[in-house]
């Protein structure tokens, strides 16, 4: 029997989708071994949210005004305490901005191995996982020695619906085991984004440029194509970090999730963090000079070649048509 602990995540009064994905994954794992799914939810005013975690058997709630804003140091310590209290040997942590602060700490505090970038996890027949390494290019099967581990799981690895119901869903209040004011981290506040010039989540057609576009000037060519298609230009993260386009144009894990009718990428490799934000687009067309680019794994149509050869051909055919 193996109990499976899930690190619950929430932001702005809602439990995140990935939390349900992990609870669903944990249900399958626990069912196979006759164990329970135990979810943790930590924050201020989160008791109401606990009721939504219907896929868990037990929901451990630490509801404390001192944990209002996610605090990397405090949340890591609280989850370490919750995990050790349950005695669960397996924990699933979302591989997200908040989970990244927590997983390594659980590994160190529980002295359990940690496996990151997981897309699936197994318990029966020995602990193991499948992981995405090298920006999604390589898939690795991993075996773990011993009877326990922490798994940091990528978003989108499992259906969320399976985590919404089917558990005993007993909510248990737990006192905050730590004093956040004694820690070295003081949250200052949350900052919401300003609206951008273009709402890329509302577009039917997105021309998405990646590092393959090579310079800020070349974005004009992509803009010409987007204009011809009545759409907008969006981008992968490095284009935003270079300052070539505003943050509001970023697709992916730390950007926006888009589901346009047509998503046409030019020089985007398709790292897992990018795929998270676009894999549900209706028609995905990918252009990349590298036949190994992981973007072709989610694309419906792909062409291997130089985007700069293709762009003028496309604009020619669409202009004045």
């Amino acid at each position: 029997m193996t109990d499976v602990f899930v690190v619950g995540e929430h932001l702005q009064d809602a439990v995140t989708e990935v939390t349900f994905e992990l609870i669903g994954m944990a249900r399958e794992l626990a069912a196979a071994s006759g164990g329970q799914v135990i979810a943790g939810l930590v924050g201020s005013g989160v008791t109401g949210l606990a009721a939504t975690l219907g896929g868990a058997d037990r929901i451990l709630v630490v509801d404390d005004a001192a944990l209002e804003l996610f605090n990397p140091e405090a949340h890591a310590a609280v989850f370490a305490s919750l995990l050790s209290g349950t005695g669960a040997s397996v924990a699933l942590v979302p591989y997200t901005s908040t989970g990244m602060e927590i997983s390594s700490h659980l590994s160190e505090s529980a002295n359990r191995p940690l496996v990151s970038f997981c897309t699936s996890v197994k318990i029966e027949g020995g602990l193991g996982a499948t992981c995405r390494l090298y920006a999604g290019k390589i898939e690795a099967d991993v075996e773990i020695a011993g009877d326990g581990a922490i798994f940091a799981v990528l978003s989108g690895s499992s259906p969320a619906a399976a985590g919404r119901s089917g558990g005993g869903a007993v909510v248990e209040q737990t006192a905050n085991p730590i004093d956040p004011s004694a820690l070295g981290t003081s949250p200052v506040g949350l900052i919401l984004p300003e609206g951008g010039d273009v709402d890329i989540t509302a577009q039917d057609v997105l021309v998405v440029v990646g590092r393959g576009i090579a310079s800020a000037d070349n974005i004009q060519e992509a803009q010409a194509l987007a204009d011809a298609l009545g759409g907008a230009v969006a981008a992968s993260r490095p284009i935003i970090d270079q300052g070539w386009l505003p943050k509001s144009r970023q697709v992916g894990k730390s950007g926006l999730t888009v589901k346009p009718k047509v998503y046409l990428s030019l020089g985007v490799s398709g790292a897992p963090e990018h795929l998270e934000g676009m894999k549900d687009a209706e028609t995905i067309i990918a252009v990349n000079s590298d036949p190994q680019a992981p973007i072709f794994g989610v694309a419906h149509y792909g062409w291997v070649g130089d985007l700069f050869d293709l762009l003028p051909e496309l604009v020619d055919r669409l202009d004045g048509s």
């Binding site: 191995p113 940690l114 496996v115 995405r132 390494l133 999604g136 290019k137 390589i138 898939e139 690795a140 099967d141 991993v142 075996e143 773990i144 020695a145 011993g146 581990a149 990918a286 036949p291 190994q292 680019a293 992981p294 072709f296 794994g297 989610v298 694309a299 419906h300 149509y301 792909g302 062409w303 291997v304 070649g305 130089d306 050869d309 293709l310 051909e313």
Partner: peptide
Amino acid sequence: EVKIVAVRMAESGSGAEMITGDE
């Protein structure tokens, strides 16, 4: 404690229709 037992190239283009020909 964490041992890679097998690696493979992630599926690339398996589900996609790969367009052939020049630009």
